[in-house]
């Protein structure tokens, strides 16, 4: 019993150390500017304030960045998950020439570094006159999100018993009807999981946004908030921490309500192959 208690305490100390930066982020965002520089620092804010959040929302471009990020991530997720669901159905349940090669290509691109693709993509999008638009980012995000989503959905799809589809065919459904009536409802948890991962991936992306977009109207949160750091003459840490917290809100929501989908996606992803 004693040993269990000691073990628990030690484990929780380590866990809290790992979580400390996130705790510190929240605490800093709630402190008044003056309290940031007090020595010794206060671990819990002496006075709680939401002034930084107010400033962030009303006096900076944060809301516009936030809106861009939402549009961008939702668009990418919808396009990618839609295309990948059909693609995964085809890869798992149909036989045609080149299917194996295609599966190999998917895995290959899943591992491909963005910096290799970004240069020609930049060139391509500039020539198409699409640079500096949210749409160009959706195109660019597809390069990593589509292989990822395909790979995830492929293993989710493989987990659905083939007999169910066969039964639907015998019962008189066409392939697409069987897909709609029987496979899609079974695949739904996998689709949610994949959509969640795709959304998070797009939400967090930095490099493409940095290269392809450089006006405040189209910037997503990642480059937008980073710009707030670089462009300000004297760094307002509490404002940046408030921005960081706000940026993580969708994640916190996902964590609170959809954690099982997150862990499921992990299992289906690269690790289990």
């Amino acid at each position: 019993m004693m040993r269990r208690t000691v073990f628990n305490i030690c484990a929780w100390i380590v866990i809290l150390i790992v979580a400390f930066p996130l705790f510190w982020m929240v605490v800093t965002s709630l402190k008044p500017q003056s309290e940031l520089f007090s020595r010794p620092p206060t671990f819990l804010p002496a006075t709680l304030t939401l002034e930084h959040y107010a400033k962030l929302l009303w006096e900076t471009n944060f809301l516009s960045y936030f809106r861009n990020s939402i549009i961008l991530s939702v668009m990418t997720t919808v396009v990618v998950v839609g295309v990948a669901t059909l693609g995964a159905f085809s890869l798992v349940r149909f036989k045609f020439r080149g299917r194996e090669t295609l599966a190999f290509l998917v895995l290959f691109t899943y591992l491909l570094p963005s910096v290799v693709l970004i240069l020609p993509l930049y060139l391509m999008l500039v020539r198409l006159g699409l640079s500096n638009t949210i749409f160009s980012l959706v195109i660019a995000y597809t390069t990593f999100a589509l292989p990822y989503a395909l790979w995830l959905l492929r293993s989710f799809m493989a987990g659905i018993p083939e007999d169910i589809e066969s039964a639907a065919l015998v019962d008189g459904a066409s392939r697409m009807e069987a897909f709609r009536d029987v496979i899609l409802p079974q695949l739904l948890p996998g689709i949610i999981s994949t959509a969640l991962f795709t959304f998070i991936l797009s939400w967090n992306e930095y490099l493409y946004a940095l290269v392809l977009v450089n006006s405040d109207d189209t910037r997503p949160l990642t480059t937008g908030v980073m710009n707030m750091l670089i462009s300000s003459f004297n760094i307002e840490w509490s404002l940046l921490m408030a921005a960081s917290v706000m940026m993580s809100v969708p994640l916190i929501i996902a964590f609170a309500f959809l954690q099982s989908y997150l862990t499921r996606g992990f299992g289906a992803g690269g690790v289990k192959g």
């Binding site: 790992v18 930066p21 996130l22 510190w24 982020m25 800093t28 967090n204 980073m226 994640l251």
Partner: peptide, 23 residues
């Protein structure tokens, strides 16, 4: 505990970097 451990992986690198720069 699992949520707390998992969180750093899912937050944006931008957030992670800002927090660590402050630390």
């Amino acid at each position: 505990a699992r949520s707390l451990i998992l969180f750093p992986y899912f937050i944006s690198t931008v957030v992670a970097v800002l927090v660590w720069k402050w630390l």
